[in-house]
């Protein structure tokens, strides 16, 4: 196994009862690059994500973060080590405004496991939190929505709030689960730019599960293709486009 900064999955197998959802999958999402994870519905993408962030315990296999085995760590410990994520089924706080939702990303990170930090932050951290929230709102293009209640937003806008929360949280590796579904064309363009900005300016690593192929092909440097829980193919966008196996997985064997 190569030592890389970022996320490495090694021989991951996840079972739901007797059903094998993900079987012996290995891949790497290093920092400083956008990695794509694609595959038809039910291929095991979200399951893989859940195993990475600790919401699911794999049957076998390891999850490595910056070379360290985090397979047995609870969700919040992995997040404290720099693993952030968004959800396909969004997890927003409905009773708060957009700004409060985004700042929860930063505040959860600083609260961590220290009781006192749940209750109180020093002046410096409070200012830093406001700055981080403002920047995340701006990067994700939702600064003008900051004071709206989350309840009033469209699906696409809610996705951006989720992204902004993960960005404000400051994770070095971001797992994004179908972040562009519900976005219009302009928003998707902007979204792609935001991802590249994060990689370029912050040195983040991004693992992107996405159905919008043009977005995936445009922003990802390397793409892994999952099908029926196994790794079918991996390569650059051009290689993936040319692959017969990938086309068959997506369009059926008749193609």
């Amino acid at each position: 196994m190569i030592e890389v900064g970022g996320l490495v999955i090694d021989g991951l197998t996840v079972k739901y009862g007797g059903n094998v959802a993900v079987s012996d999958v290995s891949f790497a999402a290093p920092v400083g690059r956008i990695t794509g994870l694609i595959g038809p519905n039910g291929a095991g993408k979200t399951t893989t994500f859940n195993a990475c962030s600790g919401l699911l315990q794999p049957s076998t296999g390891r999850v490595l973060l910056d070379g360290e085995d985090v397979t047995r760590l609870p969700v919040h410990r992995r997040a404290q080590r720099g693993l952030g994520r968004t959800f396909q089924r969004m997890q927003l706080c409905e009773s708060l405004s957009v700004r409060d939702n985004v700042s929860l990303g930063r505040e959860s990170a600083t609260a961590g496991s220290r009781p006192w930090s749940h209750v109180w932050d020093g002046r410096g951290e409070r200012h830093a939190a406001i700055a981080a929230t403002d920047e995340a709102l701006r990067l994700c293009g939702i600064a003008e929505l900051a004071d709206s209640p989350v309840v009033s937003l469209s699906t696409g806008q809610r996705r951006l709030v989720e992204l902004a929360r993960a960005v404000a949280g400051g994770g070095r590796i971001l797992l994004l689960d179908e972040p562009s579904s519900g976005l219009d064309h302009g928003e998707t363009e902007r979204f792609g730019d935001t991802l590249r900005f994060l990689v370029r300016e912050r040195g983040s690593g991004i693992l992107l599960v996405e159905h919008d192929m043009s977005l995936v092909m445009r922003v990802c440097e390397h793409i892994y293709v999952l099908d029926f829980g196994t790794l079918l193919f991996d390569g650059t966008p051009a290689e993936v486009t040319d692959s017969v196996a990938v086309r068959q997985a997506y369009l059926g064997s008749a193609a």
């Binding site: 962030s53 919401l55 609870p74 969700v75 919040h76 997040a79 404290q80 693993l83 952030g84 994520r85 959800f87 997890q91 927003l92 706080c93 409905e94 009773s95 708060l96 409060d100 929860l104 990303g105 505040e107 959860s108 990170a109 609260a111 961590g112 496991s113 749940h118 929360r165 993960a166 949280g169 994770g171």
Partner: peptide, 16 residues
């Protein structure tokens, strides 16, 4: 409030 509405979101951002 986050705990009540979206506890998973708190956890994936690092809060215990």
């Amino acid at each position: 409030r986050g705990l009540a509405d979206a506890p998973v979101a708190l956890a994936v951002n690092g809060a215990d």
